[in-house]
Computed example of a mutant assay.
Amino acid sequence: MSYRSTVARQPQSLADTLKAARAELMGMDLKPLASGVIAVTGIGASYAAAVVVAAELVRRGKRAFAVRSGEMMAGHDIADTVIALSHRGRSVETVEALRKLPKARSLAITNNPDSPLAKAATAHIRLDNGADATPSSTGYTATLLAAGLAVDAITGESSADWDAIAPLTRDVQRRATEKMPRLAELFRDRRAIDCVGAGAAIGTADGASLLLREAARLPASGYETRHYLHGPMESMDATTGVVLFGDARELTLAENLDAIGCPSLLVTSDSGIRDTGKLTVVTVPGSDDLIMRGIIDIFVPQLLAAELSDAAGLTDVKFRYKQSDTKITEDA
């Protein structure tokens, strides 16, 4: 299945995952996972999702942090609970992270209950996102959705209308699609693209940079907003591009970048800022729930990555670098 087609079918993949994850959660008690320190872990795009999930746990008053699975492979006792994210549940590092912390309570979120990660965890939630492509689209957003439901179950409260996820997805995809011709023109032939956000949006920025690297083979990096102001933005100019996520300092930063002629995309719920010069704004619905907002925001760079992939003649190309030690084989 093509990358664009998987991006387009997310209203259905999210509706299917909502139904599947809810059904599994009916028979679980995740409240014991709320005590102590919670580590949210993953590798690649799953780590970007982990940053979003950890930020929402912190917002709800929990002691939580995101950590790359590779950093947990040494087995240090750093958490009482581990929430492990891996679309197919076969990432070597994430499975090993759970195996090295056998005393910790653990919850795995994958699309396969028979996967190595699901078997290594004390609890598991299944995704039902259907087919995915590279870069990941349905797998990433379905993981966030299931994690959002898990956070609700862990904390005993909810701050998002998950039943609205399918129509909300269609609405944001429509808004983003309307801006793609302008963005395709402004972002064509960039020598580098930075992605910037604060809090949970650090994860979204990281995920967006990975989309651009995988789909369009563009040098792209993710940065935290305030850190970005302290030097990293100095290399950006008319030959580069910046994608920003947020409603606060990101607005002024977007205007700063436009003033020096750097093409920029701002994904924000602030309706008071408009397209101008080389700045393009995609206005999205706001959400207090940071996981819901993370799902909403990622739809825009998913479509931008598709545009830039097409422009570079890289539509649905396969990865060039084959790794032999990052996935556990099906028969292992």
Rank of each mutant, 00 (worst) to 15 (best):
G222M: 09
H227R: 13
L145Y: 03
L25P: 10
I296N: 05
K31Y: 04
A248L: 05
L308S: 06
L253S: 01
G286R: 06
V317Q: 13
A216H: 11
G148Y: 06
L127Y: 01
A64T: 04
L107Q: 04
H124A: 11
T41S: 10
R217A: 10
L290D: 05
G286Y: 00
R170Q: 14
F299D: 05
K31D: 02
L257R: 09
G313Q: 02
G197M: 02
I109Y: 07
L30M: 12
S287V: 01
L279F: 04
S287L: 08
A311K: 06
K327Q: 13
S309H: 02
L314Q: 12
V67P: 07
D194S: 09
A108G: 04
Y140M: 12
A79Y: 10
A220T: 04
L14W: 13
D270E: 14
I125R: 00
G241D: 06
C195M: 03
A131R: 08
F65V: 13
V151C: 12
G203Y: 01
R90N: 15
T143H: 10
L168A: 02
A150H: 11
V7F: 13
R99T: 11
Q12W: 07
S2M: 12
V92Q: 05
G130A: 01
L144R: 00
A254S: 12
A238C: 00
D171T: 11
P32F: 10
D237Q: 03
Y223F: 15
A153H: 15
I154R: 14
I38L: 09
Y321G: 07
D289G: 01
G197E: 08
A306N: 12
S46E: 07
L149W: 02
S159G: 15
V52E: 12
V267S: 03
R105S: 14
G42T: 10
V53G: 02
R90W: 00
R170F: 10
R22F: 13
R213A: 06
L98I: 08
K31Q: 14
L144V: 03
T17G: 12
A66T: 08
G75M: 13
D152I: 13
G70T: 04
A8V: 05
I295M: 04
A118F: 04
L218R: 01
A254H: 05
E93L: 12
K179W: 00
A45M: 02
D297L: 05
L98E: 07
H87V: 14
I154E: 06
G139F: 11
I273H: 01
M180R: 03
M233F: 15
R174N: 13
